[in-house]
Amino acid sequence: MPRLTRYLPHVILTLGACVMLLPFYWMVLTAIRAPAEIFNISLWPIPETFSAGRNFAKVGERVPMGRFMLNGVIVCGGILLVQVLTAVPAAYALAKLKFPGRNLMLALVIAALCVPMQALALPLFVGLAKAHLLNTYFALMAPFFLSVFAIFLFRQSFRSYPDEIIEAARLDGFSEMEICWGLVLRASLPALAAFAIFSVVAHWNDLYWPLIVVRDTALAPPPLGMLYFSDAESGADYGALMAGATLVTAPMVICFLLARRQFIAGITMTGVK
């Protein structure tokens, strides 16, 4: 009995983990199996014929997967860059500077935190359509240029920076920009790293907005590309489909395995506000 209670948690956790990981396992397994083995429902990890090369090559033939990945990198990178460039000074101003309208801005930022992007999609889409900017990288990125979450998060983090060091820096001749980027942000690098992960994961995996503004395969980020691919393939070639899914999922999963702690901090930062 004591033995059972001692091992019971591990048994339950193991069973649960199997369910959680089954899709990943099945995905990779199918991706390296020959299409002929499609009716083989065994979970034995070694395929009879190793066909990873064929399956992944098939993905490349059907859709420009490399292009999708590149699009994902461009869009995520662009979004993150502008988010940081705009949110850091704003957060610094909200945390450490006095200016008229500061409280109003803070209230607006907090209000905006409650508004999901999907609710703004229609007017933004209409605006981009009127400006003839649909089907561009700009359209993919623009709605995310401002992250109110980043402003809020950085403000919380910056507030704990000692005022006396900022004052010492002003006396020493630092410009306000140097104080903001060189001193205050430097002390908040963990928050920056966590936010970067949060932002990249969110936009790498986002389907809704790309589906709306992009009709051109050449601009599709990975999730949209995956959707194109699975629509075109419906049921025919599971090996290639799973190879595609593996490719789309791999970057974030690999990053997660490499930087588990930062990743969990980044994704769960929403929980610390």
Binding site: P162, I165, E167, A168, L171, D172, F174, L183, R186
Partner: peptide, 28 residues
């Protein structure tokens, strides 16, 4: 403040935490 040529020593000392002592002293 930076153009007044005054030096200030703060209660908390306000040293730049990411710099060495040498860099701290050199900063002004």
């Amino acid at each position: 403040p930076s153009d007044r040529n005054l030096a200030m020593v703060f209660q908390s000392y306000a040293l730049y935490p990411h710099m060495t002592v040498r860099q701290n002293i050199a900063t002004p």
